[in-house]
Design a protein around this nucleic acid. Structure first.
Lengths: 184, 184
DNA sequence: ATCAATTATATTGATATCAACGTTTCAGAT
DNA sequence: ATCTGAAACGTTGATATCAATATAATTGAT
């Protein structure tokens, strides 16, 4: 009847201006396109670069650790690994102590490609950072890191346990006292 | 030979801590999961909510305008519309003046759903904003908006023309000069 | 030793994202 | 009138993303 059901345009404008999810999606898409473009000559996407980079550490991590580091669903990681494994850039090995665990490592070809990609990242990221000079890039990083950490803590309760409570160091200590990647 | 090709762990830590693309992807994923969860009872994803919200305006926009507003590839929009059209939430009509253009509008069912979804967004977004109180949410929004605008200007040269330089009017004021969507 | 709960991962089905390429329509020049 | 270029959109193929569900291995309690 009188359910004229319509949403005032004003509210649409409010959502458009305020919504952090929308703003983050847009910026993430734009940044992804940007890095996809510069990595294209190497046959890598931005996500593949981040993933391979996260595998460059002293001892090969297992999938769950990598997924958490990237704030990525474990099943997403499974899918993301397929093309890299098929191309021989990433090697999977079952842990000898626990046969449920899969250790992920870069092959020498993968390492070579990563070595090629690194200066491309440095250059591109430097340009973006310069573009952002008036917008406090460090504060932006902190806010984004805080968001992904806190929201994951709320939602990741999937695995229950204590989860949250660790307010600091989302990326703590790049000083590497704790050396290995990932929090805690 | 001596191509030991390996990337110092130090550099991996640098990328992990500094990369704005990675930080944005992680935060965007976390925010997306968060809104996907609260909208699930309504059968909407965060992206579908944003898309439908962008269609709530005085006069039906065409696809290209919506894609630009969302910093989204046109082909992505085509795909994103399919499920919404199939469910009868969005109506497509060919422009009578220019048969290349497709006008996108919410059906009454789509409008009803959006009216239901709006208070859910208000509540959820308020909680996130409260969580961020110590991290200057306004500055975060500004930085994200700046990023998506500037990077799109650089890359969207796809359509060549003047592209960049025009800070306003992404969607030329249909009526309300600044009131229509499009960045301030 | 056995059984239940937990952990680590894979599979399926759906949507999201984009580049490359192709089609239709329009506008302007010959 | 025809031709050319541009504008708007679609299709295809590939990767990305996640929920729901399923499987295998481990751990802990009995």
């Amino acid at each position: 009847m009188s359910s004229k059901t319509s949403l005032p345009f004003q509210m649409t404008l409010q959502v458009k201006d305020a919504c952090l999810c929308l703003h983050a999606q847009r910026a993430a898409r734009a940044l992804a396109r940007c890095f996809d473009e510069v990595f294209r000559p190497l046959g890598l996407t931005n996500g593949q670069f981040s993933l391979m980079m996260s595998l460059n550490r002293p001892s090969p991590p297992i999938m769950g650790q990598v997924a958490e580091l990237l704030s990525m669903n474990r099943t997403t990681l499974t899918a993301a690994l397929k093309p890299l494994i098929k191309r021989g850039l990433v090697i999977v090995q079952i842990d000898s102590e626990d046969r449920r665990k899969q250790r992920l490592a870069l092959s020498s070809a993968g390492m070579s490609l990563l070595v090629e990609a690194y200066p491309v990242w440095v250059k591109t990221h430097g340009e973006i950072e310069a573009l952002l000079r008036d917008h406090d890039p460090d504060a932006l990083r902190r806010a984004l890191a805080f968001l992904s950490f806190r929201l994951d803590s709320m939602i990741l309760s999937e695995s229950s346990s204590v989860a949250a409570s660790q307010p600091e160091g989302t990326l703590g200590a790049s000083t590497h006292e704790s050396s290995d990647l990932g929090r805690a």
